[in-house]
């Protein structure tokens, strides 16, 4: 039960940081809120018995990816965000989007709280240590692992080609 308490606290922080991202008028603040959110996510991973992912989350997401974001924001000097005004003809979008978001939220709450599924039984707790994850990664998931490496290579080349100055 203590897990749940911790999770509720973490969840509150997480939602708060996400709202901060949504509402901030400065891109740098938004990025920092996102970093905070990712770190909280990493802690939740730890609580949920996923230490490997927690570490990857911190190093890849909060570390590498968000540094890239901040770097680009600084580079472009685009941290000051224009007030969010819709172009003419798109004014219907905001209420519709909010309505749909609320509907989505209600649907998931309905599924989780009003009609919870009881059919799934927890099996034996499994070894989720980084070692176990590594073994899985290089045996069962070796092929997707290789494919993903190709994907990263393609992304790298793509990024280089896109940002190259053309004369």
């Amino acid at each position: 039960m203590s897990d749940l308490v911790i999770l509720i606290l973490l969840g509150a922080l997480s939602v708060a940081s996400a709202l901060g991202l949504l509402l901030s008028q400065n891109a740098i603040y938004a990025a920092l809120f996102l970093v905070l959110n990712f770190i909280i996510g990493a802690v939740i991973f730890l609580v949920l018995n996923a230490p490997f992912l927690a570490v990857v989350q911190i190093s890849v997401y909060a570390g590498a990816i968000m540094v890239l974001f901040v770097f680009v924001i600084m580079l472009l000097g685009a941290e000051r965000l224009a007030p969010t005004e819709n172009p003419p003809g798109l004014n219907y979008q905001r209420p519709l989007a909010v309505t749909l978001g609320v509907a989505l939220l209600l649907l998931s709450a309905y599924v989780l709280f009003v009609r919870p599924s009881t059919s799934v039984v927890m099996t034996q707790p499994v070894d989720t240590s980084p070692q176990a994850v590594g073994i899985q990664l290089f045996t069962t998931y070796a092929f997707p692992f290789e494919v993903v490496s190709l994907l990263l290579l393609a992304a790298m080349i793509g990024a280089v080609v896109l940002t190259r100055k053309t004369e």
Partner: peptide, 8 residues
Amino acid sequence: FVVFLSSV
């Protein structure tokens, strides 16, 4: 709870 948090 985490699933709900994820949906939020």
